[in-house]
Structure formats: structure tokens, C-alpha cells
Computed example of a mutant assay.
Amino acid sequence: MSNDANVYAKMGVQTGVMSASPHKLIVMLFDGALTSVRLARLHMECGNVTEKCEAISKAVDIIQNGLWAALDMEQGGEVAQGLEQLYDRMVTQLLNANLRNEPQLLDEVEGLLENIASAWREIAPQAAGEGA
């Protein structure tokens, strides 16, 4: 029964991704990264090493292959450069948190993700013209 629920949930996510605007996709990436960081903290606190590593790896993957890869350095100018530096810092802090078991590093990354995600959510009305 649990497997059926997982399949259904994955289908829902896939459907949401396929129908999402570029703006909504970025918001979904932030949400996924935040969820992974929070799971990593929970597993760190419970001493679940394997699960902590998996959650941190997923957060790193979302940041590097989703958020960072979506940056348009030509059109984004200084904003894109600033985000690139923040994403680089987040990845470094996530890797350090994993190696050292330091939850405060996860807190830092979560705060950075929350701040940027909040700004993305605030521009949603302007992005609605894109089909959000």
C-alpha cells in the first residue's frame, strides 16, 4: 500500500512539474532543497548517518543541478553572479555540515534558501504573466 502511495505522489509531482511555469519550477526547486536540508537536520539529530548523507546529497544536487544550472549569467548580470556565490557557499556549507555533523551549518543554508525563496515567491505576481 505504501508503494502505491509513493507512485501516486511521484505522479503528482511529475504532473506539477510538466505544467509549471519557469518561475514555479524555481520555487519547486527551492522547496525541494529546503525539505532536504530539514530532513538532513532531523537525521543528524537522530544519528541516522546514511539518511543524513542522502538528504544532504539531494540538497546539493538540487542546488547545483537545478538552481545553479538555471542561472543566466549573461542576462542576470550582478544578480546572477551574487546567486552563484551564494549557491557555492551553500554547497560548501552542506558538505561541511555532513563531514562535521554541525547542524548550525544546515541552519545557515536553510536561512539562505528561505531568503532567496521568499524573494522568488514575492515576484510571483509579475511572473504570472509568463503563465505561472
Score class of each variant (00 low, 15 high):
Glu78Lys: 13
Ile123Gly: 03
Arg41Thr: 10
Ala124His: 08
Asn98Gly: 13
Arg100Tyr: 09
Asn65Met: 05
Glu110Ile: 13
Ala132Thr: 01
Met44Trp: 01
Ile56Asp: 02
Arg121Thr: 04
Ala9Tyr: 15
Leu86Ile: 12
Gln75Tyr: 15
Glu51Asn: 05
Arg89Tyr: 15
Val109Gly: 02
His43Gln: 02
Asp31Glu: 13
Ala80Trp: 13
Glu110His: 09
Gly12Cys: 08
Asp72Glu: 09
Ala33Cys: 07
Gly111Asp: 11
Leu95Tyr: 07
Glu51Phe: 14
Asn98His: 13
Leu95Asp: 00
Leu113Trp: 03
Met44Cys: 14
Leu106Pro: 08
Asn115Trp: 10
Leu42Cys: 02
Leu95Ile: 11
Ala97Phe: 06
Gly47His: 08
Met90Asn: 04
Ala124Trp: 02
Ser57Trp: 14
Asp61His: 08
Glu122Leu: 12
Ser57Tyr: 15
Tyr87His: 04
Asp31Trp: 11
Val91Lys: 07
Asn101Arg: 11
Ile56Gln: 01
Pro103Gly: 09
His23Trp: 05
Glu74Ser: 07
Ala59Gly: 05
Cys46His: 05
Glu102Cys: 04
Gly129Met: 05
Gln126Ser: 13
Thr15Ser: 07
Ala33Leu: 06
Glu130His: 05
Glu110Phe: 09
Val37Thr: 08
Gly131Thr: 07
Ile123Met: 09
Ala127Glu: 03
Ala33Gly: 07
Pro103Cys: 05
Gly32Met: 03
Arg89Glu: 14
Gly12Arg: 06
Cys53Thr: 07
